[in-house]
C-alpha cells in the first residue's frame, strides 16, 4: 500500500492512502497466502478439558444448592445454614446491638440523630450524656415508656429547653419501638454503647424491673426532670422518696415487691 508522501495524489487531503502500489499489493497477497489449516484449526485439547471441568462444576453446584428442586424451598441451604462466621460470634452482644441500632435509626434518630448528637430545638444529645451513661437504665426506661417534658439539664453545663417550652415534648416511644422489654433493652444497649458512650448493656430483666413500679402509669403522663431525679438510676427503680404521701397499704406493697436484701436494708434504715 502507499506511503502518503510518495503518492502522486498526496496534495489532496482526501486521497490519503487511496493509491495502491501494485507490487506492494501483490506482496501482501503473497505474504498472506492462506495457511492450509486456517479456519480448519481443530479445537485445542485444553479447551475441551476446560469445558469438561466447567460442566462438572455446574453439575455439582446444581446438586448442592438447588434445594432439591422443590417449589417451596427458598434457601440454597435446605439443611440449615452453616455455623455463623467467627467474627459475629466474637461479640455476644453484636446481634442485640444491631437490633437496637436498626430500631434506633428507624425511631429515635429522627430527633436525636443517627450520631446521637441531638438537634437544637428538637431533642437533647445522647452521645456523652450523663443521663445515658448513668449506672443503671431506670430513668431511661421511664423516659422511653412515658415520655419527657420540660427543662432538662445535661452534663451539668448544658441546660436543655431552659424556657420550659411546653411544645417541646418527647411522647411515649413504647409502641413505636415495638412495645417489648427486649426491644427497649436492645435500643438502650445500643445507645449506651455507641458513639463513645460507656454505659453497661441493658437486659430485658433490667427493663422489666425498672418499669415494674410504674406499670400503671399512663403513657401520656410524661415525666419531668424533677420526678426522674427522685428515681435511683440503678437498682430496683423504686423512688427513694415517694412523691406523695403513700398509704400504709402502698408502702407494704412496695416493700413486698423489693428483693429481700433491699427490703431488709430499707427496714433497717427506717427503724433508725
Amino acid at each position: 500500500m502507499s506511503n502518503p508522501k510518495e503518492s502522486p495524489n498526496a496534495s489532496s487531503p482526501l486521497d490519503r492512502g487511496e493509491q495502491h502500489d501494485v507490487t506492494e499489493l501483490h506482496a501482501a497477497v503473497l505474504r498472506e497466502k492462506p495457511d492450509p489449516v486456517e479456519g480448519f484449526e481443530p479445537v485445542n485439547l485444553w479447551v475441551v478439558a476446560g469445558i469438561a471441568g466447567l460442566l462438572f462444576w455446574g453439575g455439582s453446584y446444581l446438586t448442592q444448592y438447588s434445594g432439591r428442586f422443590e417449589a417451596n424451598e427458598f434457601s440454597e441451604f435446605p439443611h440449615g445454614k452453616p455455623a455463623p462466621v467467627a467474627a459475629v460470634a466474637a461479640d455476644p452482644l453484636a446481634a442485640v446491638k444491631r437490633d437496637g441500632m436498626l430500631t434506633y435509626n428507624a425511631v429515635c434518630a429522627l430527633c436525636h440523630g443517627e450520631d446521637g448528637a441531638g438537634k437544637a430545638g428538637v431533642a437533647p444529645p445522647l452521645a456523652a450524656s450523663d443521663w445515658v451513661n448513668a449506672d443503671g437504665p431506670n430513668r431511661l426506661v421511664r423516659i422511653v415508656r412515658h415520655g419527657l417534658k420540660g427543662t432538662v439539664k445535661v452534663n451539668k453545663d448544658v441546660t436543655w429547653n431552659p424556657a420550659n417550652d411546653p411544645s417541646i415534648v418527647m411522647g411515649s416511644q413504647w409502641e413505636a419501638i415495638g412495645a417489648s422489654n427486649e426491644k427497649l433493652a436492645a435500643v438502650l444497649t445500643y445507645v449506651r454503647t455507641a458513639w463513645g458512650n460507656t454505659g453497661a448493656p441493658v437486659t430485658a430483666q433490667m427493663v422489666a424491673d425498672g418499669l415494674a413500679p410504674v406499670k400503671d402509669r399512663s403513657a401520656d403522663d410524661n415525666w419531668t426532670q424533677e420526678d426522674l431525679l427522685k428515681v435511683p438510676a440503678s437498682g430496683s427503680g423504686a423512688p427513694a422518696v415517694a412523691s406523695a404521701a403513700p398509704t400504709p397499704d402502698q408502702i407494704k406493697a412496695q416493700l413486698l415487691a423489693l428483693p429481700d436484701d433491699q427490703r431488709q436494708a430499707l427496714l433497717k434504715e427506717l427503724s433508725k
Binding site: V47, G50, I51, L54, L55, W57, G58, Y61, L62, Y65, S66, G67, R68, F69, E70, A71, N72, E73, F74, S75, E76, P78
Partner: peptide, 22 residues
C-alpha cells in the same frame, strides 16, 4: 424470594457462559 433452584440454575448457566466467551 424465588425457589432456590431457579436462582441456582441461573448461576450455573452464567458460569457456563465461560464456554462461548472463551
Amino acid at each position: 424470594p424465588l425457589p432456590a433452584w431457579m436462582i441456582t440454575i441461573s448461576i450455573v448457566a452464567s458460569v457456563m457462559m465461560l464456554i462461548p466467551v472463551i
